[in-house]
C-alpha cells in the first residue's frame, strides 16, 4: 500500500508545482503588457502624472517578484484585489458566478456521464454494427460543430419555434431547484451534446482496446459466457481507462462553458471572463484564468489518482 501512497503523493506534488508555474505564467503574462498596466488602463492620452499616480495606487513601483508573491498570497486566501472596471473585490464578483458555472457543469455532467459511458460500451460491444456506425457519424458531427451552432439550433427549435424552454438562462437566488433546472436546461443540453460525443468516442476506444487483450480471449476460450466475460473480466480492468475518460471530459466541460454561457447569457464565470477581457479588467481576467486552470489541473489529477488506485499491479505489489 505504501507504494501507491508514495506515487499518489508524488503526483499531487507535481500537480501543485504545475499550478505554481501556471500562476507565474498568468501573472507574468500581464507583465508583458506593452508599456505597463497603468498605461494600459489609462490609455495613451493620459498625462505622465496621472499615470504615475495610477502606478502608485496599483503598487507597480514595487519589483515584479514582490508583487507576484503578494498576489499569490492573496490568491491562496481568496483575495485577488479589486476589479479595475467596477472597484468591487474580485472575489465577490467571481464567487456567485463560479457557483452558477459549477451548477451548470454538474447538471450537464450528471446527464452526460451515464449516457456517454453506456453508449460507449454498447458501441464497443457491437462495433461495426448499424448502431455503431450511426453513432460514429453523429458524434463526429457533434464534436465538429461549434458550441454556439448547437446552442442556437436548440434555441431555435426548443425556445422560439416551440416554447418549451427559455432561451435566456438568467438565474436568481429565490428560484426553486426545479425552476433553475428548467431555466438552465438548454445550456446544459448543449454541453451534454458535445461532451457525450467526446466521452462516448473515448469510452468506445478504451473498451475496444480492453476487449482486444489476450486475457479476454482466454476467458472466451475457457467457455466463460459473454455476460460474465464483460462483468468479471473486462469491467474490473475498465475502471482506469473510464475514470480517465470521464475526468478529461469534465475538464473539457469546464472550458466548454465559456461559449455556452455567452450564447445563453448565463451569469457564470465564463461570461465574466469574456466581459473582463473586453474591458481589459486584468485582476478579474487573472483570477478567472487561475480558477479555470486550477479546476482543469484538479480534474487531471483526479484522473491520474483514479487510475493509480484501480491498477491491480499497484494495488497488489510484489
Amino acid at each position: 500500500m505504501n507504494d501507491v501512497l508514495q506515487i499518489i503523493v508524488k503526483r499531487l506534488g507535481l500537480g501543485l508545482i504545475t499550478l505554481l508555474v501556471i500562476s507565474i505564467i498568468i501573472f507574468g503574462a500581464v507583465e508583458l503588457l506593452p508599456g505597463d498596466l497603468a498605461q494600459a488602463i489609462l490609455g495613451q492620452a493620459a498625462t505622465e502624472e496621472t499615470v504615475a499616480a495610477m502606478r502608485e495606487e496599483l503598487g507597480l513601483d514595487r519589483p515584479a517578484p514582490v508583487r507576484y508573491f503578494a498576489w499569490l498570497k492573496g490568491a491562496v486566501v481568496g483575495d485577488f484585489g479589486n476589479s479595475l472596471a467596477s472597484g468591487i473585490p474580485v472575489t465577490e464578483l467571481i464567487g456567485p458566478r463560479f457557483k452558477n458555472t459549477l451548477f451548470l457543469a454538474v447538471y450537464a455532467a450528471i446527464i452526460a456521464v451515464p449516457i456517454a459511458i453506456m453508449l460507449g460500451v454498447l458501441a464497443a460491444l457491437y462495433r461495426n454494427s448499424v448502431f455503431d456506425r450511426v453513432a460514429n457519424v453523429l458524434t463526429l458531427t457533434s464534436i465538429s460543430s461549434p458550441e454556439f451552432f448547437l446552442g442556437y439550433i436548440l434555441v431555435l427549435f426548443l425556445a422560439v419555434k416551440n416554447s418549451l424552454f427559455p432561451a435566456i438562462s438568467s438565474l436568481s437566488d429565490d428560484m426553486s431547484l426545479a425552476d433553475k433546472l428548467h431555466r438552465v436546461f438548454l445550456p446544459a443540453l448543449t454541453l451534454v451534446l458535445v461532451v457525450v460525443a467526446h466521452m462516448m468516442r473515448m469510452t468506445r476506444a478504451a473498451i475496444i482496446n480492453l476487449l482486444a487483450s489476450p486475457y479476454i480471449e482466454m476467458a472466451r476460450l475457457k467457455g466463460t459466457p459473454q455476460r460474465k466475460v464483460i462483468t468479471h473480466h473486462a469491467l474490473p480492468n475498465a475502471w482506469a481507462p473510464v475514470i480517465n475518460v470521464v475526468a478529461l471530459n469534465l475538464a473539457y466541460l469546464i472550458t466548454g462553458v465559456v461559449l455556452v454561457e455567452v450564447v445563453f447569457v448565463y451569469p457564470g464565470i465564463g461570461q465574466l471572463l469574456v466581459d473582463s477581457v473586453t474591458k481589459r479588467d486584468f485582476p478579474v481576467v487573472q483570477a478567472c484564468c487561475l480558477v479555470f486552470a486550477a479546476t482543469y489541473i484538479l480534474l487531471n489529477l483526479a484522473a491520474d489518482v483514479g487510475s493509480i488506485l484501480t491498477n491491480p499491479r499497484l494495488r497488489h505489489p510484489k
Binding site: I25, V274, C288, C289, A293, I297
Partner: peptide, 9 residues
C-alpha cells in the same frame, strides 16, 4: 494544463 480558450483569452 491551461485550457486553450482560456489561455487565448
Amino acid at each position: 494544463s491551461i485550457p486553450t480558450l482560456v489561455f487565448s483569452l
